[in-house]
């Protein structure tokens, strides 16, 4: 319990404490009550960051989970040649640290000397710049998908492995085709795992930080200092010395994330019941 208090509650309590003050270069530290929260709720930069990750969430997460589901079903079908090799190669990107992955993709996205640049030269075409401000979010989505499809696949695949094989035999005896089996047996069995994967992905999306932080060196104009809520909190605190406001932004975002994750969980469980 003491450990729990120290490593879990203390940082949160300290952030809340910080968020109630304001430290100025001129004038020092003063207690301002809920001022920082009022400011955060009316801060267009914060909301634009939130809007960006929300958009990311509704587009990238379904794509990623759908791909993960397909791969898990394919491997589980037992009809795939070299299934274990396929499984490990899909999972491998998850083992690559996110920073390294972002750097690697950053190189590939380069229109001059990167993969895109090489393709342009080779095929004599002019592919759109993945690091332009219009495409940067999609490019980041691509990196995140690449990283986490394998991870989500593993969650789903392990859920499929615990399905009793006699169910499949019974279904086949009743004349059910593969699609029917997927629809009637496998998908219902996956509901719990899908819910967990979804909640993890929601949290992950809201916490988006590494990829934009790394790619910012390559696309400083497309990725603003308030690109995602996390990056905004980081910029506030380490560039602007606004620790108090940064703590406020972090807390507001944390609360929003918790609420959304909780709502999703409630809905998911109700369906399951």
């Amino acid at each position: 319990m003491a450990v729990f208090a120290l490593v879990f509650l203390a940082p949160i309590a300290y952030s809340v404490y910080l968020s109630l003050f304001r430290t100025q270069l001129i004038g020092g530290t003063t207690f301002v009550g809920a001022d920082n929260y009022v400011k955060a709720l009316g801060d267009p930069q914060f909301w634009s960051a939130f809007g960006r990750v929300a958009l990311f969430l509704v587009v990238q997460v379904p794509i990623m989970l759908f791909l993960a589901l397909l791969v898990a079903l394919a491997i589980d079908s037992g009809r795939l040649y070299g299934a274990s090799f396929f499984r490990i190669s899909v999972f491998l990107p998850y083992a690559v640290p996110a920073v390294v992955a972002a750097l690697m993709w950053g190189f590939m996205y380069g229109t001059r000397f990167g993969l895109i640049g090489n393709l342009n030269d080779l095929l004599g075409v002019s592919l759109p710049d993945p690091l332009s401000s219009d495409l940067i979010l999609a490019s980041i989505g691509n990196i995140v998908t690449w990283e986490f499809v394998g991870y989500n696949m593993l969650i789903l695949y392990s859920a499929l492995r615990v399905v009793n094989p006699s169910l499949y035999e019974a279904a086949e005896m009743d004349g059910a085709g593969q699609l029917r089996i997927v629809w009637a047996i496998k998908l219902p069995a996956l509901r719990g795992a899908l819910l967990i994967a979804t909640i993890f992905s929601i949290i992950g999306s809201f916490q988006l930080f590494n990829e934009p932080a790394i790619l910012r060196d390559l696309a400083p104009n497309a990725i603003t200092t308030y690109f995602t809520p996390n990056y905004y909190a980081y910029s506030l605190s380490f560039r602007g010395q606004q620790f108090n406001y940064s703590a406020t932004v972090a807390i507001v975002m944390g609360v929003i994330t918790m609420v959304i994750a909780y709502v999703v969980q409630l809905r998911g469980m109700r369906k399951g019941a």
Binding site: L25, P220, N221, T225, R239, Q241
Partner: peptide, 21 residues
């Protein structure tokens, strides 16, 4: 500025727009 470090950090948020739009 007495807070040039901060000002420079938001340069690309503002003036940077001139390079891409």
């Amino acid at each position: 500025l007495p807070y040039q470090v901060y000002a420079n950090s938001v340069f690309n948020d503002t003036v940077g727009k001139a390079y891409i739009s």
